[in-house]
């Protein structure tokens, strides 16, 4: 019937950009990013990373419709910075912290395996 196609969750529609930016015309230093094929998994994480930056005045995300696979990420910064710089910072922080987490987990698991020997 009107069931959305499964592949729509990860296949980008033709002519649509994965990541695009629209500058806010009324508020200075504010912009809305549209990220296709993403959900709360990434949205909430980016929001948190953005809010931890003291140059960011506002960061929030929404998924306007549950059947449409894109999210809107709105960022406003202080005049010394820009929304895109803030998002870039958030992404590079994310890359680094996830790498740290990966190392920590691997280290811990290798310790467990050698101690118990038989596990997995």
């Amino acid at each position: 019937m009107n069931e959305p196609e499964r592949y729509e969750l990860f296949v980008l529609p033709e002519g649509v950009e994965k990541l695009s930016l629209e500058k806010d015309t009324k508020v200075p230093n504010a912009a809305t990013f549209t990220i296709q094929c993403e959900d709360h998994t990434l949205g909430n994480l980016l929001r948190m990373n953005l809010l931890e930056n003291d140059k960011v005045l506002f960061a929030g995300y929404k998924i306007p419709h549950p059947l449409e696979n894109y999210l809107l990420l709105r960022i406003q910064t202080v005049p010394e910075s820009t929304p895109s710089a803030a998002l870039q910072q958030a992404l590079s922080d994310l890359v680094q912290s996830v790498a740290v987490l990966e190392e920590t987990f691997k280290e811990q698991m290798s310790g467990i395996k050698s101690r118990e020997g038989t596990y997995l």
Binding site: K18, L19, L21, K23, A31, T82, S84, A85, Q88, L94
Partner: peptide, 13 residues
Amino acid sequence: AELFDQKDFEEHM
């Protein structure tokens, strides 16, 4: 992060 580096959002702003 890489996609971001390819795009020139600063210029766009």
